[in-house]
Amino acid sequence: MTTALFSVAGAVALIASLFVVTSQRIVHAALWLVVALGAIAGCFGVLHAEFVALVQILVYVGAIVVLVLFALMLTKAPTNPLPSLTTGRSPFAAVVAAVLALILGTGVVLAFGNEKIKPVADGSAQAVGTQVFKTWVLPFEVLSVLLLAALIGAIALSVRKKED
């Protein structure tokens, strides 16, 4: 049952992400990204990582994609199809990606081909919370510094110069 659910969500994520990198309309790509990220959130759900799934939807779909869309608007991205969105290097890129996928896929299959997972159903939110505040305090705090720095940095970059 979980396998089937996961397969469906995974397939959606796969197809959507393919559209993300091939769509000729940049806004469409952004919207496909929403679909892909949502589907991956579904995958997380299937794996009983509900907390992660929720954060995914909240942060990604809710915040990041909106940010991206704003950025698209600010950079005057066209909504019509734009063949030049993909460069002439795409076949090369495809080959590289395929080779990489082949190597990684082989390695992974060889290593984990026979393993099964049985996700436990009890609330992952509590477990994550425990982990964050019990074990991973330091990275968590550092992450806060990171967020602050990124924020200030983004602001500093976005503020126009005085003479402008």
């Binding site: 991973w136 330091l138 990275p139 550092v142 990171l146 990124a150 940095g153």
Partner: peptide
């Protein structure tokens, strides 16, 4: 985890 995040804390401000 600390390693990766700390590295990002070095990187992102630098690019800014």
């Amino acid at each position: 985890a600390t390693l990766v995040i700390a590295l990002e804390v070095v990187s992102l401000p630098s690019f800014a």
